[in-house]
């Protein structure tokens, strides 16, 4: 191997284990000396290349990663929180708006009927006109005459509207009469029904009357009956 090629290979990599380089060095003390000199220079260069590392660089690198991850996580949860908050707001708002609609008591009455079915008379003694009128008085109303066989008379709350509920035994089975005060924020349908009951309502001077009976019951006689006998104090 000529001098130039030898130098070229040693310069390219002083740590070479190239067999030809090794052989050439063994044969020629001059080449050997050059190579050793290069190895020493290389060691010095490696040492010189080892510049000082900034203090705590490794910890900084680990710290910046956790900080990055934390910020990313926070951003993400902030996004979730914003979504949850706006959902809650929307739900709250629509609920408020929804409930500000006039209350439709038809469904309320029907739901109430299911419980009323189980209701027992408070005493074995039939309810008399005096008892009914005592309760009707708070609506500014009274019956001139008894409207039938009243089994139960009681106040009930239809969506927070205090009403009077009478349960009567009739030839067509049990019927309910509701007396509901007139209010701006409630609306009473003229007719309403579900799969067990149906009801009819009539608006009167100071209150509304609703009669509810079993699906096939004819409600008109009872409705007329109530309309004729109810009086409102002026």
């Amino acid at each position: 191997m000529d001098e130039l090629e030898f130098r070229r290979r040693v310069y390219a990599n002083p740590d070479t284990t190239d067999a030809e380089v090794v052989k050439a060095a063994q044969q020629d003390p001059g080449k050997r000396a050059f190579w050793n000199e290069q190895k020493k220079l290389d060691r010095d260069l490696k040492q010189a290349a080892k510049v000082e590392i900034p203090d705590d660089l490794a910890h900084k690198l680990i710290w910046q990663q956790s900080a990055y991850e934390f910020a990313r996580h926070k951003r993400r949860s902030r996004w979730y929180m914003a979504l949850a908050a706006s959902l809650a707001f929307t739900i709250g708002l629509s609920f408020t708006l929804f409930t500000r609609q006039p209350l439709n008591l038809g469904n309320e009455v029907l739901a109430h009927m299911v419980y009323a079915e189980d209701e027992q008379a408070h005493s074995a003694v039939p309810v008399d006109l005096r008892q009914v009128n005592a309760k009707l008085a708070s609506f500014g109303a009274s019956f001139t005459d008894m409207i039938g066989d009243v089994e139960v008379v009681n106040y009930c709350h239809l969506q927070s509207v205090r009403s009077l509920h009478l349960i009567l035994n009739t030839q067509q089975g049990k019927m309910s009469v509701f007396v509901v005060p007139n209010r701006d924020d409630i609306s009473l349908p003229d007719n309403f029904a579900d799969d067990r009951y149906h009801g009819q309502g009539v608006h009167m001077q100071r209150a509304s009357i609703m009669v509810v009976g079993h699906k096939n019951a004819n409600l008109l006689p009872m409705l007329d009956n109530v309309k004729q006998r109810i009086q409102f104090s002026t």
């Binding site: 290349a49 590392i53 490794a58 690198l61 680990i62 990663q65």
Partner: peptide
């Protein structure tokens, strides 16, 4: 794994960057 990577290579990577850029 990340921490192991940092510990194993940060010094050499920094030195390489330093010699490439010549500014600490």
């Amino acid at each position: 794994r990340y921490e192991a990577l940092v510990h194993a290579f940060h010094a050499d990577i920094y030195r390489y960057a330093y010699w490439l850029i010549k500014d600490k």
